[in-house]
Simulated assay, not measured.
Amino acid sequence: MGAFGHLLRPAAGPIRRWVLSAFPRPQTGAIDYDHPAGDPGLFGPSSVTWRVHADFCGMLAGGLCALYLQTLHPRALAGVWDHSNFREDLVGRLRRTTAFVGGTTYAPTAAAQEMIEHVRRIHARVRGSDEAGVPYAADDPDLLTWVHVSEMSSFLAGYRAYGPLDVPARIADAYLDETRRVAEALGARDVPGSVAALDAYIDHVRPTLVYGERSRVVLEILARLDLPVPLAGLSRDVFLHAGAALLPPWANELLGRSEQDLRKARLASAALRRMAPLFRAALTEGVASRSCRRVGVDPGILDRWPTTP
């Protein structure tokens, strides 16, 4: 826990219990992150991705930010609207997304590839029309690219806001270049591999984004998200508003966020920055650390950027 570990230790147990309550380990079918020895998975310990995805606060806030962004794409939103039970189990959807990102990042190669194939099979069955009657398919390469970009840009923003390390341009570019391999394996195309390419892509897509009635309904459900944790309402509001603080100005404008909304986001962001070291000190035995040991490296490598990403 570092130089101040003795000061942080009393909070470690409650924080671990909080996280395991919100994101419990599956009782069956759990991925074996400890074997086989030496298997680096899709990225490995020399990747930027292993470091970015190891930061709980940045990833949770970033994931919530991504949900805001994903509600703005009419066809991407229609797939969720028509083919998921998000109205009754938004927590379950959030957990499944978390499990997929964690698995494709840290799981042994075969398990990660099976997760990708499983999602591809699901996407092949998801068809319909959006609110305006435009047909969609979940395996449409363009939709897959939007979902990926909304997530990775948000995770990167989350790490920059709440993570332990500054993110130089070369690291941000390496992260986007690395993570696009999962999107491409799912069927995405023209996936941005640098910050400049990501900015250009978003500028291209923005005219097609809409804040509609379905967007409003989904965000209302998100605002009532009920995690099974102590102080559930406070926990939700801190992370949800801290996630909203990561939204770019154009998204705030499109979502019609008020000055009060923006003020809540700033306050939550400041609060999460103060809390983040407690989470890092408490969460030292997650899948990132276990995966480091699987490939025979000290988990301490996650505390510094690779020298040649």
Results as ranks from 00 to 15, higher is better:
residue 70 Q to A: 07
residue 222 L to R: 09
residue 45 P to A: 13
residue 287 V to K: 04
residue 44 G to Q: 11
residue 206 R to E: 07
residue 270 A to C: 07
residue 298 D to S: 14
residue 87 R to W: 01
residue 31 I to R: 07
residue 98 T to F: 15
residue 155 F to T: 12
residue 92 G to V: 10
residue 256 G to Y: 02
residue 128 G to Y: 01
residue 37 A to G: 12
residue 276 A to Q: 01
residue 41 G to H: 00
residue 153 S to E: 14
residue 289 S to Y: 05
residue 209 L to G: 04
residue 5 G to T: 05
residue 309 P to E: 08
residue 62 G to H: 02
residue 301 I to A: 10
residue 139 D to W: 04
residue 9 R to M: 06
residue 212 G to S: 11
residue 301 I to L: 13
residue 28 T to W: 14
residue 71 T to F: 00
residue 260 Q to E: 15
residue 118 H to T: 14
residue 50 W to L: 10
residue 159 Y to S: 06
residue 227 L to D: 02
residue 236 R to S: 09
residue 157 A to C: 03
residue 107 A to R: 13
residue 41 G to N: 02
residue 294 R to W: 12
residue 275 M to A: 15
residue 107 A to I: 10
residue 293 R to C: 10
residue 136 Y to P: 07
residue 233 G to E: 14
residue 289 S to D: 11
residue 193 G to L: 03
residue 307 T to C: 13
residue 217 V to W: 06
residue 100 F to A: 15
residue 293 R to H: 14
residue 218 V to A: 08
residue 181 R to Q: 15
residue 245 A to W: 00
residue 182 V to H: 03
residue 52 V to M: 11
residue 18 W to T: 12
residue 191 V to Q: 06
residue 117 E to D: 15
residue 49 T to Y: 01
residue 52 V to C: 11
residue 113 Q to P: 06
residue 110 A to C: 06
residue 227 L to H: 06
residue 288 A to G: 12
residue 181 R to Y: 08
residue 22 A to D: 07
residue 231 L to W: 13
residue 115 M to C: 13
residue 193 G to R: 04
residue 74 P to C: 05
residue 170 R to K: 04
residue 160 R to T: 07
residue 138 A to H: 06
residue 291 S to K: 01
residue 52 V to N: 11
residue 275 M to P: 09
residue 162 Y to E: 02
residue 6 H to G: 10
residue 172 A to F: 01
residue 104 T to Y: 04
residue 184 E to K: 05
residue 36 P to K: 02
residue 88 E to Q: 15
residue 262 L to C: 14
residue 112 A to S: 09
residue 205 V to K: 10
residue 175 Y to E: 01
residue 37 A to E: 14
residue 77 L to F: 05
residue 128 G to Q: 06
residue 139 D to F: 05
residue 133 G to A: 00
residue 75 R to P: 07
residue 34 D to Q: 15
residue 277 P to G: 06
residue 97 T to P: 06
residue 143 L to G: 00
residue 47 S to W: 04
residue 111 A to N: 09
residue 293 R to E: 14
residue 268 A to T: 02
residue 204 H to R: 15
residue 9 R to I: 07
residue 29 G to K: 00
residue 152 M to W: 06
residue 194 S to M: 03
residue 100 F to V: 12
residue 292 C to F: 00
residue 4 F to L: 15
residue 170 R to I: 01
residue 109 T to W: 04
residue 279 F to H: 13
residue 49 T to F: 02
residue 144 L to I: 10
residue 114 E to H: 11
